[in-house]
Amino acid sequence: MSTTEIDRQWTTRLRKRVEGKLPPEKLLPDTQPAYVASWIYVFGVATLSSLILVIATGTLLAIRGPIWWHQSSIGHFVNSLHLWSVEIFFFSMIIHLWGKFFMGAWRGGRQLTWMTGVVTFVVSIVTGLTGYVSQTNFDSQWISTQAKDGINATGGGAFFNVLNFGQMLMWHIVLLPIAAVILTALHVLMVRVKGVVPPYEDEKKVAQ
C-alpha cells in the first residue's frame, strides 16, 4: 500500500484530525491558566465527581434491587448515598451554570461547550424525575400521580407515561444515564478543545 493510499484511509484521516484538535497535552494538561485559580471554577469538577458517585451507587442499586435498598441497612445507606450524591450533583451543576452564565462562557467559539452543558442539564432533570418515580415507595406514587398531569398537559403522556414503572425504570437506569454520560464526555472534551473561558478583562490579553 502506498503512502498516498494510507493517507486517504478514513482511519488515518480521523486520527490526524483528532490529533490536530486534541493533542495529548491539551487533553490532560499539566497546568491551568492563572484565572482558573478561583473557587467558581471548582463546581464543574464537583459536578463531574458527584456524577461518578451517582453512577457508582446507582450501579450497586441496580445489582441488588428494591428489596435490598428498602429492607437492609447497607441498602438504605447506598440508597441514601445515591440520593445525596444527586443533591450535590444538582447543587454543584446549578452554581456551575450561574458562574458560566455570568462569565458568558459561550464566548470565543465555545457555543458547543455551552449547548452540550445546557442539554446535559435538561437530560439530568428528566433522569432525576424518572429516579424519583422509580423508588417504589409512597413518595414515588405521589410524584408520579402529580407528574402525569403536567406531562399529559404537554401531550407527551402518550409516549412518556410516568405511571408506567417499567418504562420509567428503563429510562432511568439505561437510556438517560447513557445520554447523560455521553453528553458529559462531549462537554468535557469541548472544554479541553476550546480551553476554559477567560474572564472578560483577560479576553483581550488571551487573544493577543
Binding site: P29, D30, P33, A37, S38, W39, I40, G99, V206
Partner: peptide, 28 residues
C-alpha cells in the same frame, strides 16, 4: 433553604480567596 444555600455558596465562591493562587504557573 436549598436555593438560599446555593446563592450563599455562589457568592462565597466569587469572593473567598483560592489557596495557592499566587504560586500558579500560567499556561495559555
Amino acid at each position: 433553604i436549598v436555593v438560599g444555600l446555593m446563592v450563599i455558596t455562589f457568592v462565597a465562591a466569587l469572593f473567598l480567596p483560592f489557596p495557592g493562587k499566587g504560586r500558579r504557573k500560567e499556561n495559555r
